[in-house]
Amino acid sequence: MRIDPDKCIACGNCLPYCPMAAIAMIGDIVVINEDECVECDCCFDFAGCPTAAIEKVDLAWPRILRNQFSNPVVPTVTSMTGRGSEEMKTNDVTNQFRAGFFGLGVELGRPGIGVRFDDVEKVTMALAPHINKFAAVNPVTELLEDRTTGKIRAEVLSEKVMSVLVEIIAPLEKLPALLQELAALKTKVNTVFCASLISRLDENGNSPVVEIARQWGFTPEIRTKTNIGMGKIPPGYRGEAHK
């Protein structure tokens, strides 16, 4: 994104529309800090510039990732809109989170701080030795150079985006080690992050991950997203549920 200095009348209307506070009035000129801009299009789409001075520029690789990970209506490298997979939302059909396993989602950068991929890599590399796999249909997984080490492609590391979701699946016995790895990252990343635990419930509606997390001193929130089991497997479906 850029501001055409010949058209800009320095009214300042666009300044509050930047979620990264990357637009500033310098003297009587309004400028966008390109390094901090995540190309979310918020200023272009919503600020209503009276002289149409805000201009989209053609984004080349890897800067295009900023737009894909920041504007929710732009498809990402996995050709999906959104930043993650369907995860537990369709688990009653896909059965990707089975008894004995759990899912972990680590969302970095939100609310409203943003994240660079070098911080995302700290998470993927910390988790990689303990897990079965990174979620297949996830744009971060697509950016991994090596799925066994969690290393991300070098050319994207300095790119900043609004938020990123890392998703993994691992056996239940790995949960304590993963939680400790995550806790250690609290002071190592330059942004905020939120971890969430996904699990198939037992016959009585209890989650095995909640008990383990509590035993290790973590406090899962009592407010949840709950799949209430109404999905039906479509005829001919050959996903995880049939394995």
Binding site: E87, M88, N91, D92, F97, G103, G105, L108, P111, G112, I113, L182, A183, L185, K186, V189, N190, T191, V192, F193, C194, A195, S196, L197, I198, S199, R200, L201, G205, S207, V209, V210, A213, F218, T219, P220, E221, R223, T224, K225, T226, N227, I228, G229, M230
Partner: peptide, 21 residues
Amino acid sequence: GLKVHTTNHSLGIWGKKEKLP
């Protein structure tokens, strides 16, 4: 008469919380 199937429990926000509004 429905059986809950799968949950997603957040562990809260961690990291540089001082950056938050």
